[in-house]
Design a protein around this nucleic acid. Structure first.
Lengths: 200, 200, 200, 200
DNA sequence: GATGAATGAGTGTTCATTCAT
DNA sequence: AATGAATGAACACTCATTCAT
């Protein structure tokens, strides 16, 4: 305890810090998260945080980055080109919403946090943009005979937006992942028609 | 100095302050907006802000409130029950996106800001929830022969989410209001089918 | 109400203001008493306070002054030179403690307040000094054959100090006026001997 | 700058801060003493004050506490039960007035200050109450054959009050410690009789 | 005579950030 | 490699005080 400053390899320390940071950031929001609190939670001294990350902003950026990577990894399997496009989209939705469900606090809050913190909006934007692009491609490849004027990337924006809104409810525990996937899948392919009595 | 700060009636000052506050809040985010900056922008002294609004939080809340009211007013015409439901939805979309287009900075950022500011999330949430409810009713009344299990309010969540995402692009000038309205309208009724070559 | 600004003669207004000021000062202490609160309690506008008293300090000084005068008036009857000195002292004690008992909040707190507020200590001091002088004279005139070196004014300081301490308890309701008078009277003439079983 | 503010051990800094605080509080009174001024006088930065004491109130409380302890220590020797009670009282008076004489500014003003600051009155009150209790015991044990109804604690209140009043004069340099001790000692045992020519 | 409107100046408090060890 | 000690710079908020009407 007193003086038990374990020598840990850099990589481990880094994760330890990010874990602590994410927890504190998500609990308190960016501004109300203090470096003191993060250092305390990570069981290290404040100067270590600065040694590793340079500033609060950079630390937050690192958090967003790590979560963004994890997020993309969670969705990537959807990219399996052996599946038919529609299955791919479904897989992507499942990956996305499953991730949100499994990482409610750490991701959701960071995500919503970061969007509000304009200094980081662009960074979140890049993760999101990758998601949108991926979605756009899926949409395009799964649409036979598309109207030539169709802008799939804007369609993807809308779908991802819908996905995010639904994800909020998933994260809030108001709806479960499967129902959310069905809803979005249906919305994508049939619009409101999907709410019409089936086969009747 | 610059603006000749001369005794104005209360109502005028209030708007002056809110205008300034919205500008500063939207430029800097809630936490990075200082009361000093807001007072300066409003050409008044800080104590006036406190006299009129009591605290930074209350000032921000007042901003959200005013914009929320304006927002609802902008969309309300859509409620005309003489129109067929689908026209109503279209009118609502036009009202919504038109408002965002016309009040980019003041609304968009406040909106995104407020969502990230946990203390205010609930307040924004209520405006948003009203919007979602309204949407849900439109969806329901415009769907003939609905599947009995359909949860229109979750559908509405998704659509509003899509709308917000598209609205971001509208506010960013990346897409124009009409195209956005078409897109969301199409998404609502036909899903991706709407991107298929028409008349085919 | 709205606009019912009664034209009151100056003297009345002054008392009204002082009453309000004393109440607020005694409730909150000098620093935590705001001119706003005083004006509100006096049912007048703040500028009136300034018109009549010039500043918060001067207002407080006026409070102390008025209460000081009242205080001295309450004790003065003791000066009746027809009474034997010891009766005079008893009358003075009764006057003093009776005043404190009857004006707990307004006097006691102001008094203790003012002593702590060094800017006003001297002013309170003057009321107090008059009291001490009076006491000293009583002591002197009632002591037959005094030791030539006796400094009655320091004796008076001690007695008045004892009186104030006892007065605190009177104001606090912990002891009643008569008991307090007996105690101090006894202390003055017999010291602790006064606590010895009588006539035994 | 002036003082070469170099990393000092906690204990040292604490005293440094309290010294400065006491000086500033006693010079200006609680409210008019600014944390800035205290920090400046202590040759440290304001955040240090907050790091060590948390708030202005707590800092003031710490001042009162430290002085209170010193005060009690100065008087404690009087508790030597080998001395006859009357000697004990004399020793206590000497301790008390000697302390006041030696710590004029730091104690006197703090004491008078704290009494006026309602938030701290209770804290001072407790020190004072201990003093009163101690005095009451001394009085009781030194009175042979007391009147059964005698309330020594009220007697003690009066005596301590007299002591405080005299202490003010001691602190003001208007009377020296020995004379003050004689006066109070005499007052306690003989009342005004003590001013009568001795041996008569 | 009376006041609503307005502010300059200051206070306590916090926090990201950096030395000195 | 690691940290306890220290601070500069802000910020929200308050209040006595004064115009302009």
């Amino acid at each position: 305890m007193a003086g038990g400053t374990k020598r840990l390899p850099r990589a481990v320390r880094e994760q330890q810090m990010l874990d602590a940071a994410i927890e504190v950031f998500s609990d308190n929001g960016f501004h109300d998260a203090s470096m003191d609190a993060i250092a305390a939670k990570a069981n290290i001294s404040k100067p270590m945080l600065y040694l590793y990350y340079g500033s609060k902003d950079e630390l937050f950026a690192a958090c967003i980055h790590r979560e963004g990577v994890r997020f993309v990894e969670a969705i990537s399997p959807a990219g399996d080109p052996n599946l038919p496009p529609r299955e791919q989209l479904r897989a992507a939705l499942t990956g996305f919403l499953g991730f949100v469900d499994a990482n409610r606090r750490s991701w959701m809050v960071l995500y919503r946090q970061a969007i509000g913190q304009q200094a980081f909006a662009s960074q979140v934007g890049s993760s999101r943009d990758r998601l949108i692009e991926l979605t756009a491609k899926l949409l395009e490849s799964s649409t036979k005979d598309p109207d030539p004027g169709t802008d799939f990337s804007i369609m993807a924006v809308a779908l991802v937006g819908a996905g995010e809104a639904v994800a909020d409810r998933v994260a809030g525990g108001e709806i479960d992942v499967d129902a959310a996937v069905d809803l979005l899948d249906s919305l994508a392919w049939r619009g409101l028609a999907g709410t019409t009595k089936k086969k009747q």
